[in-house]
């Protein structure tokens, strides 16, 4: 039983949902995998919960850009053949989420994006894919690039009265390869470090890599690397970009900074090979 009183709303229109978010300290409920246990354990005590399940934010639309609703679950990502074909990186990531088939079917990409847990799989993936996040509030809509969205551990530029509605992706160029690799200590454990990479063939000087490393830092770390031997660049540049190293009970200070280049190199290699 959740200890504190709160009002539960499942509005049928975005306008109603945004009006509710504009009042007091309302929380957005997606799959519930973060918010509900946080409320059970008293870590979050919102006075109102706004459930997005009736807002139609669980669609994947592919027409030029790829538009993924904030309420899309990992299972929906895995089940969408069109999305798997257009954004294989997103499917690779969804296929490696821990917590079993229940979590894969319950947790939403939008929820993970907004909670900004440094150890989550989604934030760095969004950064690697250069996703645009659509935020809506009573006072208007705005778009934020994933790389600008994350400001700290569990912190984003989303205001309390705003709701993430969609994540928009430009399809990677034809022939682009992708790789996703993560280090974790057991089947069900949180990732220690994740690396998501897109490799695009360039006309000269070898492929261009867009690499985002998650788990290692308070916010995802982005590296753009050109050339046929990117490992050296990763080893040289990545440790110093980890300016707010994340540490927890799974890996203490210094550990993530040390292993991050190796994990990043594996994603890079996979991205080059998968092309």
């Amino acid at each position: 039983m959740i200890a504190h009183d709160f009002d539960y709303h499942a509005p049928r229109s975005l306008a109603d949902a945004l009006a509710l978010l504009g009042q007091a300290d309302a929380a957005v409920l997606g799959g519930g995998t973060w918010l509900v246990p946080n409320m059970t354990y008293g870590r979050q005590r919102p006075s109102a919960v706004v459930d997005i399940r009736r807002l139609g934010l669980d669609a994947i639309e592919i027409a030029g850009d790829i538009v993924v609703g904030a309420g899309v679950t990992y299972r929906q990502v895995l089940q969408s053949e069109a999305l798997r074909a257009k954004l294989p990186l997103l499917a690779m990531m969804a296929g490696q989420v821990t917590g079993g088939p229940q979590i894969v079917g319950q947790a939403t990409l939008g929820g993970s994006a907004c909670y900004a847990n440094p150890s989550s799989d989604v934030p760095a993936c969004l950064v690697a894919l250069d996703a645009t996040l659509r935020l809506a509030s009573r006072t208007g809509h705005r778009e934020v690039k994933a790389a600008d969205f994350y400001t700290g551990a569990f912190q984003t530029t989303r205001r309390p009265d705003e709701m993430l509605t969609h994540m928009v992706f430009a399809p990677p160029p034809g022939g682009a390869g992708c790789g996703y690799h993560k280090l974790k200590f057991s089947t069900g454990s949180w990732p220690i470090v994740t690396a998501a990479c897109i490799a695009v063939a360039a006309t000269d000087g070898g492929p261009r890599h867009r690499l985002a490393v998650g788990g290692a830092n308070a916010v995802p770390v982005l590296l753009e690397i050109d050339g046929r031997d990117p490992d050296e660049a990763v080893a040289a540049r990545l440790p110093s970009l980890i300016s707010q190293e994340w540490s927890d009970e799974f890996a203490g200070a210094g550990y993530r900074r040390q292993v991050a280049p190796a994990i990043a190199s594996r994603a890079l290699r996979q991205a080059r090979g998968a092309r």
Binding site: L29, G31, T40, Y41, D51, Q102
Partner: peptide, 28 residues
């Protein structure tokens, strides 16, 4: 009650879910 153990697994609209992560109100 954290979504880790799976002892509370049920099918909700045919999908397996950890029912400690679902508000009762959301199952209406």
């Amino acid at each position: 009650l954290t979504g880790d153990c799976g002892a509370c697994t049920v099918l909700l609209d045919g999908q397996p879910v950890k029912s400690c992560l679902v508000l009762a109100a959301a199952a209406d």
